[in-house]
C-alpha cells in the first residue's frame, strides 16, 4: 500500500485537498455510532457486574482478572493462569482461519471464472453468487444441518454412488462448523476478489505468455500482486466475522464447547448475565484483531517495494 505511482496498486494524492470532506461522512457516522458504543463497552468492562445483567458504577479489574487468572472453583485457591478462555479464543481463531482458507481455495477460482466471462454475463454471475444470501442465515444454516445429517441427503448420495460404505459422522464436528462458516461467508470472499480481478488487464497476461512466461509464473508474478488487495479484503471479511460467529458453531457443531461468539453472547443473553465480563472479552477480541490488522498492514508496507518489481 505504499506510495507508488503508475504500477498496479496505484495509491495517489489526486484528492488530497478534498480528503477531509470525503472522509467526513465516514468519520462522523463511525465515530458517533461505533466509537461511542465501543467506548461505552470499554467503560463497562471496568465496572462491577450487577447480579444477573447490568452494571454497578464502581471501578474494578474483576472482569479482566476473571479472564486471565484462575482462583479455583471457590475463588480461594492460589492464583494460576486461566487457560479456559485462552483456549476458547485459540479454538475460534483456528476455526475461523480454516474457514477462511477454505473460502479462499474455492472463492478464488470462482472469482477468476466470473471475471473471465464476457462482459454482460458477469453481472448475472455476480448476482447468482449473492442470491442464496437473500434467504436468512438461520434458514440456510438449518438447511445445511439437514443436509449433513447422518441419514441426510449428502450421506445418502455418497452411499448411493458408493464412495463410502457407511454414513459419515459430519454433524457436531469441527468440520461441519468450518463448512458452515465457509458457506455463510463465501460471497464476502468472492466479490472483493472479483472486483479487483475484473479490472485486471488480461492483455497484460497475454503479453506475459507471449514472452514465454509459464502459466504459473504469469499467475504468481503478474496476476497475484495486482489482485492482492482484493484477496486481503476478502480474507478480512471472512475471517473477522467468523471469529464472532455463533450460529454455525451452535447448530452444526453441537455447541459442546464455547466459541468466542457464544461465550460473549452467554454473558448478555444467557444465564451468566455478566456484562462487564462480556465487555472485557469483546475488548480483548477487538484489540487482538486490531493488532493483527496492524501487523499485517505494516508487513504489507515492507513487502511492497519488492512486490512492485
Amino acid at each position: 500500500m505504499e506510495h507508488s505511482k503508475g504500477a498496479a496498486g496505484a495509491v495517489t494524492d489526486t484528492y488530497a485537498k478534498e480528503r477531509v470532506w470525503l472522509l467526513m461522512p465516514t468519520w462522523l457516522m463511525l465515530s458517533i455510532l461505533v466509537v461511542i458504543p465501543v467506548l461505552i463497552m470499554l467503560v463497562y468492562s471496568f465496572l462491577t457486574k450487577e447480579f444477573r445483567g447490568g452494571v454497578i458504577w464502581e471501578f474494578t479489574f474483576a472482569a479482566y482478572d476473571q479472564f486471565f487468572f484462575d482462583r479455583g472453583l471457590f475463588g480461594d485457591e492460589p492464583v494460576k493462569i486461566e487457560w479456559t478462555y485462552i483456549s476458547i479464543y485459540w479454538r475460534s481463531i483456528w476455526q475461523a482461519g480454516l474457514a477462511t482458507v477454505l473460502s479462499l481455495l474455492l472463492g478464488f477460482p470462482t472469482a477468476y471464472y466470473i471475471a473471465t466471462r464476457p462482459q454482460n454475463s458477469r453481472a448475472v454471475w455476480v448476482f447468482l453468487i449473492t442470491i442464496p444470501y437473500w434467504v436468512n442465515l438461520l434458514i440456510r444454516t438449518v438447511s445445511m444441518k439437514f443436509l449433513l445429517r447422518e441419514n441426510g441427503p449428502l450421506n445418502d448420495f455418497l452411499l448411493m454412488i458408493e464412495v463410502i460404505d457407511e454414513p459419515l459422522r459430519l454433524i457436531n464436528t469441527a468440520l461441519a462448523v468450518q463448512l458452515g462458516l465457509f458457506y455463510s461467508y463465501l460471497p464476502f470472499m468472492v466479490l472483493p476478489i472479483y472486483a479487483s480481478i475484473e479490472r485486471y488487464n488480461f492483455t497484460l497476461s497475454e503479453a506475459a505468455s507471449d514472452l514465454y512466461a509459464t502459466k504459473f509464473a504469469t499467475l504468481t508474478r503478474v496476476i497475484l500482486p495486482s489482485i492482492k488487495p482484493g484477496v486481503i479484503a476478502g480474507c478480512i471479511l471472512v475471517f473477522v466475522p467468523s471469529l464472532g460467529a455463533f450460529l454455525a458453531p451452535d447448530l452444526l457443531g453441537g455447541a459442546k464447547n464455547f466459541m468466542i461468539g457464544s461465550l460473549i453472547e452467554e454473558q448478555f443473553k444467557g444465564s451468566a448475565g455478566n456484562w462487564p465480563f462480556g465487555a472485557a472479552a469483546s475488548m480483548i477480541l477487538l484489540s487482538m484483531v486490531l493488532i493483527l490488522l496492524m501487523v499485517f498492514s505494516r508487513q504489507q508496507k515492507k513487502a511492497q517495494p519488492q512486490g512492485g518489481q
Binding site: K145, R149, N151, D250, L251, G254, A255, K256
Partner: peptide
C-alpha cells in the same frame, strides 16, 4: 462439577431450539 464433566462425554450437543426436530428425525 465432576459428575457433569464425566457426563459430558456421553452428550452429542447442547441445543434448546431444535429439540423437537432432533427427536423427530432420530438424530
Amino acid at each position: 462439577n465432576a459428575m457433569l464433566l464425566d457426563a459430558k462425554q456421553h452428550w452429542a450437543s447442547f441445543n434448546s431450539d431444535t429439540t423437537k426436530d432432533l427427536l423427530v428425525s432420530g438424530d
